[in-house]
Structures are given as structure tokens and as C-alpha cells.
Amino acid sequence: MNRTLATRLSRLAQYGLLGALFVFLATPMLVIVVFSFDANRFPTIPWGGFSLEWHRAILADPMIRDAFLNSVLVGLGTAVLATALGFAAAYLDFRYRFRLKLPFILLVAVPPAVPATILGMAMLAFLSRIGLFGRLETVMACHVAIATSFAMAIIRLRLNDLSRDLEPAAWNLGASPLSALIHVVLPFCRPALIASFFLSAAVSFDEFLIAWFVGGVHETLPVRILNLLQGQVNPKINAIGAVVLVISVALVLLAQRFTGVRAGRRPNPDPGE
């Protein structure tokens, strides 16, 4: 009896902790979205009534419109290039053995692990000396250097499932290594390519420190928000925030939809004490 009660309490504590944690993670996102529709200038309780005023205001703000357009351009460019480079890196790792492979893979994999403050500063210092400072293309190029790591990881995972015979079979049936790559490996990797496209776009769409350092006058949307946040309280922030949040969550969910990431496939995990 005593044992059952203890077990029950322990279970309750476990689920309680998990629930509290999810509330903790969800709260900031919900706050942004909910208060973007608040009529009050300063977001707090009590709720000042439903209003689309701030959403309309951001549509009318040319700086925000430009920043949004910049973000879309940089995000799309990053998505395409990071997916292409990530595929190349993943395929090289999968197909070939070569000297200095580990340094090569690390060169692609490591960038997200370097704090963005340091990386942003380093990129600014170096790229401004070779005349690339303050261009939208440079922001994109730097985002590609980071996002390729994620693209490579996703595509490499998919290549693990590619039967070792499939490419040789294509060569055997008259496909040159290049045609085999195009007609066999690429179609096989399609879900991973789509996933890495969306995830790279999400990574770029959220990145603000590097964009802030190297972008110069070209602000992306997160940089615009950062600049707004450092100024006075501005009710527009919630509205932009809601838009950005919805877009990045959508991108991540789309990416997930195509990776099929699962934490293990096992039968009913509850051993039932």
C-alpha cells in the first residue's frame, strides 16, 4: 500500500514537472502572439481589448517592410545554397574516403557551435577588409556558412538509409557517376533536401547577431526587432514578433514533417509496475 502511494506520488511529480516545463517553454511564444492583438500600448494584464492596430501599423512601416523583404531574400538564398552545399558535404562523407576528411567535415559541422557574438565580430573584421561589408549577399553568405552544418546533418542521416548497392546498380545500368547522382541519389534524398531547405531558411530567419554585425544598413527582420527592442517600448514589436514567430515555427514544422525524426521505435514503453 505504502509502495503504491509512493509510486503514485512519484508519477504525479514526474508528469507535473514535465507539464510545468512545457508551460515554461510555451509561455513566451503565447505571450508574444496574444499581446500582439492587445490594444494597450504596454503589454500587461488586464488585457486592453482585441485590436489589429499594431498589425496594421507594421504593414505601414516601410523599414519593417524592407527588413521583412531582406529577411525573405536572405532566407531563400541561404536555404538554396546551404542545402546544395550540405548535400555535397554529406555525399562526400558518405561515398568517398579521403585524407583530411575529418577536418573537412568539422569545417562544415562546427560553425553553429561558435558563439554568434564572436563569429559575427570575426566575420565583420575579416569581410570588411576584403570589401564585403554591408551587403545583403554577405549576410546570406555568412548564414550559409552556419546553416550548411544542419543541412549536412539531415541529409547525411538520410544517406545512411541508401542501400550501398543502389548507386553501383545505376552505374551498371549505364548511368555515369554524375547521372547516378542526379537520377538516383538526389531523388532518394528528396525528403531530406526539402527538410534542410526549410530548416536552413528557419536558421537564417532567426539569426540576428551576425546579420547585425555584417549587414550594415541592410537590416533583416530580427535585426530590426533588436534595434526596436533597444529603443523605447514599442507595441509594434509584439505584432512583428507574432509574424516572425509564426513563420519560423511553420518553417521548423515543415522541416520536421520531412525528416520524420523519431525518438526510438519501441512497443508500449510503460513496463507497468
Binding site: 542501400s163 548497392d165 543502389l166 553501383p168 546498380a169 545505376a170 538516383v184 531523388p187 532518394f188 528528396r190
Partner: peptide, 10 residues
């Protein structure tokens, strides 16, 4: 092939 190596996406 022993594994047949058919292309699963075709």
C-alpha cells in the same frame, strides 16, 4: 543484384 537494388522512388 542479390539485394535487387531496385530504385524505391521509381
Amino acid at each position: 543484384w542479390q539485394s535487387l537494388a531496385l530504385f524505391p522512388f521509381l
